[in-house]
Structure formats: C-alpha cells, structure tokens
C-alpha cells in the first residue's frame, strides 16, 4: 500500500495532473497496484483473528521446519556440543575429565596463546586496512576514464579466484633466500635488504599480511566499484564546480554514497582476517619459533597434530567469540555513522 501511494500520487493531488488528465500508462499502473490492497488487508485481519489462524500458521511453518531443524543440528547443536569439549581434557580418543576453565587459563597465561591472539588481531586489522585502502584507490582509479580499465579490473581481480594455498606457495618461492625477491634486491644494489623473509621474526608476519592483501584487494575493489556505479557523476561535477578539491569530493560526496560498500568490504575482510589459516600454514607453518602463530593455526595444531582436543576446542571458542564480538562492534560502529550521515 505504502509503496503504491509513494509512487503513484492520488488523482489530482501532488501528481501534477488534473483529474481525468492522468497519463494512460500511470493509470494502468495505478489500477494494478492499488486495487488488490483492500483484499490483502482483509485477508490479514482474517488471519489474525479467524478460527483457523493456528492451523494456517502451522501449515506455513511446516515447510520451513526441515531446513530449520537441519540448520539447528548442523550448525548450532554441533557447535555447542564441540564447545563443551573446551572444558575437558579430551585427547581425541577414549574418556575425558572435566577441567573447568583450565584450558582458557592456559591460553591467556601462556606465551603461545597470547602470541596467537595478538598475531590474529594484527593480521585481521592490517588486512582490513590494507585491502580497503588499496581497494578503494584502485576502484576510484579504474571507475571511469582509463581506457584499459576493464582489462585492468580483470587483472587485479584475478588473484581472488585462485586458491589461497596455491598463491601462498608461489609467494613462498618468491620469499626464499635464493628466490626472486632477494635476487632482485641484489641486482639493484640493495644487498643489505636481502634476508630470509619467512624465517626472520621481524619480517615474517608482514610477509604473510602482504600475501593476504595482495590476493584479496581485487575483491574489495569490485565491491567498491559496485558502490561507485551508483554515484551520479553530476554530483561530483557539481561539487567540482563549487570548488571542492579531489579529496573533499571523495570525503563529502562520494564516500557517504559508497558507505554501504565500505560496511560490506570491511566486515568481510575482518572475518576473513580473523580466521586466517591457509597463508600462515603454507608460508611459515606458524614459525619462526611461533612468531606467526594465529588462533586458527593453533586450533589445528593442538587439535589434530598434538591430539589436545580439549585445548583446541577452547581455542576455537575464543576465536569464535573474538569474531562475533569484533564483527558486531564493527557493524555497530559503521551503522551508527551511517545513521548520522
């Protein structure tokens, strides 16, 4: 009803057409859109108060029940059941004992647990900042004007479709002591910059971050390009005529309009960053000497390599809570800003 009223003004009021002078096309739309409304209202009333309301409600829910039950069992019950092992010392086989919060105490009091949490946060936030910064710059650059923009978009997006493992192995080759990166540095006279990139504790975490950002920037660029497609060129031109600089045009005109893209891109990248696993395992395996361990790699190692299922489940729970809390906080932050704007 509301939709019809907004789109098609009542005859003779606000539409700019006197009664009897409404264009044929609009009259047709109005007939179709408005006429069923009273019936719908009546039906709704009948549902809410009629004697068959309960059975009809059951009939409509019946079809959703299998999907709801499957979702409940596969996702929530399984996660809850797995989560209970966080309070046990189960080793993946045989019996177990309840150990209360011992596993969580071990995580937060041990060096390895703390290192994994800090590394996870560094990679996640670095990933969000890096991909969004590069993604929006590339999107702005390739939005209009450049003749080869379609080709360049494909080239930049291409790494996104590759397997993270395959990409990481290629980069591992690049980072090797005798690899292309050190060879290049040597060839341009920068021998002092040469190092064992993946085994140097001062560089290893950043090398992983570079690979992550390199691979996902294309995806973020596409998200921003979709947002930029909805920004009218006239607005930018008007702002330019009013004397706004390039940065002012972006900050005050373009960015408010592509804010939904920012919310989507930053949320996706944050979650992806928090659960990073493939790149770490393929590039450094968590080394050197645990310098690049993350919560996800520790979950895998503790659970499947060392058979410490209880401790691994506790790490999983910490990772899950971390993802939920940070994602909700981030969405609340971006939503409130959106409301203000």
């Amino acid at each position: 009803m509301g939709f019809s009223r907004r789109l098609i003004p009542p005859t003779g009021a606000g539409g700019g057409h006197p009664a009897g002078a409404v264009p044929l096309q609009l009259r047709k739309i109005r007939n179709v859109a408005i006429s069923p409304a009273p019936q719908v209202t009546a039906r709704r009333r009948g549902r809410a108060s009629g004697p068959d309301y309960g059975s009809r409600l059951f009939a409509s829910w019946w079809w959703a029940i299998p999907a709801l039950v499957a979702s409940l069992l596969i996702h929530y019950v399984a996660v809850a059941a797995g989560g209970t092992f966080a309070f046990t010392n189960w080793k993946g086989i045989g019996s177990f004992e309840w150990v209360g919060l011992d596993n969580f105490v071990k995580i937060f009091s041990g060096d390895l647990g703390r290192t994994a949490i800090v590394n996870t946060l560094i990679l996640a936030f670095g990933f969000v900042v890096g991909t969004n910064l590069l993604g929006v710059l590339l999107a702005l650059g390739l939005n209009r004007g450049v003749k080869t923009r379609y080709f360049l978009r494909v080239v930049i997006f291409m790494p996104t479709v590759l397997s993270p493992l395959a990409v990481s192995y290629i980069w591992r080759f690049i980072y090797q002591p005798e690899g292309p990166l050190n060879s290049f540095l040597g060839s341009v006279g920068l021998e002092s910059w040469q190092r064992t990139w993946l085994a140097d504790p001062t560089t290893s975490l950043w090398t992983i971050l570079i690979v992550m950002v390199w691979q996902s920037t294309g995806l973020v660029m596409v998200i921003y390009l979709a947002g930029l497609a909805g920004v009218p060129q006239e607005l930018e031109e008007a702002a330019a005529i009013d004397g706004a600089s390039v940065f002012q045009r972006f900050r005050l005109v373009v960015f408010p309009l592509i804010r939904p893209s920012f919310v989507i891109a930053s949320t996706l990248m944050l979650i992806q960053g928090l659960r990073v696993f493939d790149q770490v395992m393929a590039l450094t395996g968590g080394g050197p000497f645990n310098a690049t361990e993350t919560l996800a790699t520790q979950v895998y190692k503790q659970t499947f390599a060392y058979g410490q299922f209880g401790y691994g489940a506790a790490l999983s729970l910490v990772l899950t809570v971390l993802i939920i809390v940070i994602s909700l906080a981030q969405m609340a932050l971006t939503s409130s800003r959106e409301g203000k704007s």
Binding site: A199, D200, P201, P288, F289, N290, K301, Y306, G307, Q308
Partner: peptide, 21 residues
C-alpha cells in the same frame, strides 16, 4: 608421551637458528 614434546624440540631448533631463544 605426546607429539608436542617433539614439536617443541623442532620449533626450538628453528628458534635457536634465528636467535629467538
């Protein structure tokens, strides 16, 4: 008693080589 002891040894050797431990 556990694979973790051997893993600690292997990881520790890398830490020695990098000077981290």
């Amino acid at each position: 008693p556990s694979p973790e002891v051997y893993n600690t040894l292997g990881t520790g050797v890398q830490g020695l080589l990098t000077g981290q431990t």
